[in-house]
Computed example of a mutant assay.
Amino acid sequence: MNKNQVEGRKTEGKGKAREVAGEATDDKSQELKGKADQLGGKAEAKYGDMKSGNKHNNK
């Protein structure tokens, strides 16, 4: 795993936690920020996958 893969997946996890916290507190702003973090994390992880030549993770 390279840095982009690790950071991307870490950002995805933080985003999911933020989204769930937003849902629990009925805070739409936090929910949306969480979803945005997840998308950014997925993009970075995908970049890392391509960079390392990992073609097995095509979700």
Rank of each mutant, 00 (worst) to 15 (best):
M1Q: 06
M1A: 12
M1L: 07
N2W: 01
N2M: 03
N2E: 06
N2R: 01
N2C: 01
K3M: 08
K3W: 07
K3Y: 10
K3Q: 13
K3F: 09
N4I: 00
N4Q: 15
N4F: 13
Q5N: 07
Q5K: 13
V6E: 07
V6P: 00
E7G: 00
E7L: 14
E7W: 07
G8K: 01
G8M: 03
R9E: 09
R9G: 03
T11S: 03
T11L: 14
T11E: 15
T11W: 04
E12W: 11
E12T: 10
E12G: 04
E12Y: 12
G13D: 08
G13Q: 14
G13V: 08
K14Q: 14
G15I: 00
G15N: 01
K16T: 11
K16W: 04
K16E: 13
R18T: 13
E19F: 12
E19W: 09
E19T: 09
E19R: 12
E19A: 11
V20K: 13
V20R: 14
V20A: 04
A21G: 01
G22H: 00
G22R: 00
E23V: 05
E23T: 05
A24I: 04
A24E: 12
A24G: 11
T25Q: 09
D26K: 15
D26T: 15
D27I: 08
D27Q: 04
D27M: 04
K28G: 09
K28Q: 14
K28R: 13
K28V: 14
S29T: 14
S29L: 10
E31A: 11
E31T: 12
E31D: 04
L32Q: 15
L32M: 10
L32T: 11
K33R: 15
G34A: 02
G34N: 02
K35R: 15
K35Y: 04
K35M: 08
A36I: 03
A36E: 07
A36K: 14
D37A: 14
Q38G: 06
Q38C: 05
Q38H: 06
L39P: 02
L39S: 10
G40K: 09
G40D: 08
G40N: 11
G41R: 01
A43F: 03
A43R: 07
A43V: 05
A43L: 07
E44P: 00
E44W: 02
E44H: 05
K46F: 06
K46P: 01
Y47N: 07
Y47R: 10
Y47T: 08
Y47F: 09
G48S: 02
D49T: 00
M50T: 05
M50G: 06
K51N: 06
K51G: 01
S52M: 06
S52H: 03
G53R: 00
G53N: 00
G53L: 00
G53D: 00
N54G: 01
N54F: 01
N54R: 05
K55L: 12
K55Q: 09
K55R: 11
H56R: 14
N57R: 15
K59G: 07
K59Q: 09
